[in-house]
C-alpha cells in the first residue's frame, strides 16, 4: 500500500513545490529623501512579480537587523536627494545590498532589481532609441516558461524508482537468511539464478505500476509533456527498474542482517542519488573527481536519458550511450550477486 502511495505523494509535492524561481523576494527600502523618482522606482519594484516591498527604513543601522531577522533579502539604498541629483547632475546612485546567504538567489534577484532600475532609466530617456543599442533576443529552449517541474520530474522519477526498488529487494534475500528459510531454498534443486530472478519478478511488476502512476501524474497533473517517443521512455525505464532491483539484490547478498541491508540501501543510496545524479545540482559544475564518481551512479544516466526523451523530445538513438551503460551496469550487478550468492549452509 505505502509502496504505491509514496511515489504519488512525492511526485506531486515535489513537482509543485520544488522550484528555484525567484519570486516575491522581500525588499526593504532606504530612501532618505522621498521624491517622485524614488517612489516611482519603488512602485516599479513592488509591482514586479519578483519583489514585495515589505519595509521602509530610515537609517543604515537598520539594515543589519533586517537581514538578521530575515525580514528582507534585499535592501535598496537610494542616495539622499535622489531625484534632484538625477535632474541636476544627470547622475544618481543606488546601492543594492543583498543577503547572500544563498548565493544564487542573491545573484538572480540583484540582477532583476538592476534590470527594473535600468528600465526606469530608459523611461526617463524617453522614447528616443539609442541608435547603437544592441538588443539581445533571448530564447529559452525546451522550457520557455522555465518551469521547475521540467527539471525535477525526471530527477524525482530517477530517485524514487531507484530507492524504492533497491530498498524492496535489498531485504529480500537477507530476510530469508535471518528467518532461516534460506536453508530450504538452498537444499532445493533450484539454481541460484532462478531464485534471484523469482525474487525480482514481483517487485518488478510493482515498480512498473509505480512508474505508470508517476508518468500519469506528471503528464496530467504536473503538465510535463512527453515530448519524445513514449515507447523509448518505457524501454529505458524498464531497464532502469531492472537495474535498481539488481542493485538491491546485490546489497542483499552482501549483507547479513536486514538492518544493515536497509541502512545501506536507504541511507547509503539516498544522498549520492540526490547529490550526484544531476537531479538537483548540475554534474558539470562539480570537481572532476566527483564527476567521475557520479558516473557510477545509475540515476545520473537514467535522468539524463529521461530529460533527453521527455523534455528535449529526442529519439532513442540519442540516448544509446545511456542505455548501453545502464545495461552494462545491470549485467555487472546481477553477475556479482550470483557470484556472491552463497549456496553453502553456514
Amino acid at each position: 500500500m505505502i509502496l504505491l502511495l509514496m511515489p504519488v505523494i512525492q511526485i506531486i509535492l515535489f513537482g509543485f513545490a520544488l522550484s528555484t524561481e525567484v519570486k516575491n523576494t522581500e525588499v526593504a527600502v532606504l530612501a532618505p529623501t522621498n521624491d517622485d523618482a524614488t517612489s516611482r522606482i519603488i512602485d516599479k519594484i513592488n509591482a514586479s512579480a519578483y519583489f514585495d516591498v515589505v519595509a521602509k527604513i530610515h537609517t543604515t543601522a537598520e539594515i543589519q537587523p533586517i537581514f538578521r531577522d530575515a525580514k528582507a533579502k534585499l535592501v535598496i539604498v537610494f542616495e539622499d536627494h535622489f531625484a534632484e541629483r538625477l535632474r541636476k547632475t544627470g547622475k544618481a546612485h543606488i546601492q543594492l545590498i543583498a543577503d547572500a546567504t544563498d548565493p544564487n538567489a542573491a545573484t538572480s534577484f540583484t540582477f532583476y532589481a538592476s534590470n527594473i532600475i535600468a528600465s526606469y532609466q530608459q523611461e526617463l530617456a524617453g522614447s528616443v532609441v539609442n541608435p547603437y543599442q544592441i538588443i539581445p533576443e533571448v530564447k529559452m529552449l525546451y522550457n520557455p516558461q522555465m518551469i521547475g517541474a521540467f527539471n525535477f520530474v525526471p530527477g524525482v522519477l530517477g530517485m524514487i524508482m531507484l530507492l524504492i526498488c533497491a530498498m524492496m529487494t535489498s531485504i529480500a534475500i537477507v530476510r530469508e537468511k535471518e528467518m532461516g528459510t534460506m536453508e530450504i531454498l538452498l537444499v532445493s534443486p533450484m539454481k541460484p539464478i532462478y531464485i534471484i530472478l523469482s525474487k525480482i519478478t514481483p517487485y518488478f511488476v510493482l515498480s512498473c505500476v509505480n512508474f505508470a502512476t508517476i508518468m500519469l501524474l506528471s503528464v496530467f497533473v504536473l503538465k510535463v509533456p512527453v515530448a519524445g517517443s513514449f515507447i523509448s521512455l518505457v524501454i529505458v525505464s524498464l531497464l532502469y527498474i531492472f537495474l535498481s532491483l539488481s542493485l538491491g539484490l546485490l546489497v542483499s547478498t552482501m549483507t547479513d542482517s536486514q538492518q544493515a541491508a536497509m541502512l545501506i540501501s536507504g541511507m547509503g543510496l539516498m544522498l549520492p542519488v540526490m547529490l550526484l545524479s544531476g537531479m538537483i545540482f548540475p554534474v558539470e559544475n562539480m570537481p572532476v573527481a566527483l564527476q567521475w564518481l557520479s558516473d557510477i551512479v545509475p540515476a545520473k544516466w537514467y535522468i539524463s536519458a529521461v530529460k533527453s526523451i521527455m523534455i528535449k523530445g529526442l529519439g532513442i538513438t540519442s540516448v544509446l550511450k545511456e542505455v548501453a551503460i545502464l545495461s552494462f551496469m545491470s549485467i555487472v550487478m546481477i553477475g556479482i550477486s550470483l557470484k556472491k550468492f552463497k549456496i553453502r549452509l553456514e
Partner: peptide
C-alpha cells in the same frame, strides 16, 4: 551598429534546468 540601426544578438539557452539556463542568460546579457 555603425550605420546607427542598432544591433541584435540571439541567445538560446537550454532551459531544462530553468535555474541554470536563467543564470547563463543573465550573465551573457550583462
Amino acid at each position: 551598429i555603425v550605420n546607427r540601426q542598432g544591433g541584435k544578438v540571439m541567445i538560446s539557452a537550454n532551459a531544462v534546468n530553468g535555474m541554470k539556463g536563467g543564470i547563463g542568460m543573465t550573465y551573457l546579457n550583462s
